[in-house]
Design a binder for these strands. Structure first.
Lengths: 219, 219
DNA sequence: TAGATTGTTAATCGATTAACAATC
DNA sequence: TAGATTGTTAATCGATTAACAATC
């Protein structure tokens, strides 16, 4: 079981997790699929289906799901405890925005360092509430990754003109997961099919809204 | 026809559009669905299916699609010529990153102004290559939107603690499309079902990668 | 008990993939 | 002509929704 969980399921799991986090209920309280629907917008049928699919069975008829145990299950699926260490390539506005994104902290995703080549950025330090993240020179990337060999994920926020080249470099350094935010579709080289690449377009959802504004559809 | 185009289709259309843009082929050249597959990663079957579904028929057997006409069709669907005017609420790193995002320029999406309440941000000006975007005080938002009544779209990049409140305000000001980037799931009030709201989680795709790193699945 | 809610199966819906006739 | 590629339909696949028995 648990063979292939799609991003859609993962996203909904995140929703449930964040809902519980926000509610901050006592652990011995219960929450029903109907209540989760009200908070997250995911239908109660979908909620139950997801839990069933993922093998989460912490529900009690008539009451709902025990918050404490549900929380634990969701946490496990999302690997919150294990967390993740990542590097951000490109320390422009987007790279820095990513590094401080609050949801990453909630999800225990730690940006260990940013990399850039601009002299005015290299050597600076990004100060977040609880930690400092250095901006290092891109030439130091290989060395850094060798010293910090737990890091297997990179976020790519460089100009589109150098994105493909950087992707190849990252694969060469042994990265296993790469999210590309550069405004260009990147493709994996043939010899790197074990690497996860996701082209994540910032604000792609905006395009849908633009489309709909101009194509008002009767309900 | 053309009743309900999903975001997935819109995204793929964007891919095709960007592919053509990047290739910069002479207008009398042809491009086949197979070639589009190689560039965008979308299967040639999917490409043809999309074009068929959208009523794009600029293909010639044995040759492919006439670049010039295909370009025109894609442009029309994406409303590139009409473009869109938007405001960005919250001028932190994320808000500024959005404002300068290159794909928005390619797609003719114009950020007209940012809004914030921090004194050190209000009054500053974001300088991009071809234009300047002012950061205004959030209290001026209503007035600004009244004067610029073409603006119907807002991007929300405020702290999560004030996001819901800002959403309500934006709806009050007559916004019709809102993309929420704050790390909190927002929901539309009952009386605003004609407004498009999309909760867009920066780096949501990262979660999938984290999941997969810890749940290595045999192919 | 009656009502509410889970767990689970079945039905529906939508999106992708495959197949292939038409034809340039 | 033979080969390539579209346009279109059909088959498959996957995801969501609906239904409902079990039971607390």
């Amino acid at each position: 079981m648990k063979q292939k969980i799609s991003l859609r399921v993962i996203r909904r799991i995140s929703f449930y997790y964040e809902a519980l986090l926000k509610l901050d209920l006592p652990g011995d309280d219960y929450i029903s699929s109907k209540q989760l629907e009200e908070i997250t917008g995911v239908s109660c049928n979908q909620v139950r289906q997801d839990f069933f699919y993922l093998g989460i069975s912490v529900g009690k008829q008539k009451k709902g799901y025990q918050v404490k145990r549900l929380f634990k299950e969701l946490k496990k699926i999302l690997s919150i405890d294990k967390g993740a260490e990542v590097v951000v390539i490109g320390a422009g506005r987007l790279g820095r925005a990513l590094s401080e994104y609050k949801l990453f902290r909630i999800r225990n995703i730690n940006v260990r360092a940013l990399f850039d080549k601009k002299p005015e950025l290299v050597g600076t330090i990004l100060e977040l509430k609880e930690k400092k993240i250095p901006v290092l020179h891109i030439d130091k990337l290989g060395e850094f990754l060798k010293e910090n060999n737990k890091i297997k994920i990179a976020l790519l926020s460089v100009p589109d003109s150098v994105a493909q080249e950087m992707l190849d470099k990252l694969i060469g350094f042994g990265m296993k997961g790469i999210v590309n935010f550069a405004p260009r579709i990147l493709r994996l080289p043939e010899n790197a099919k074990d690497v996860q690449l996701i082209n994540d377009c910032i604000g792609a959802s905006l395009y849908k809204i633009v489309y709909q504004i101009y194509n008002k559809q009767k309900k």
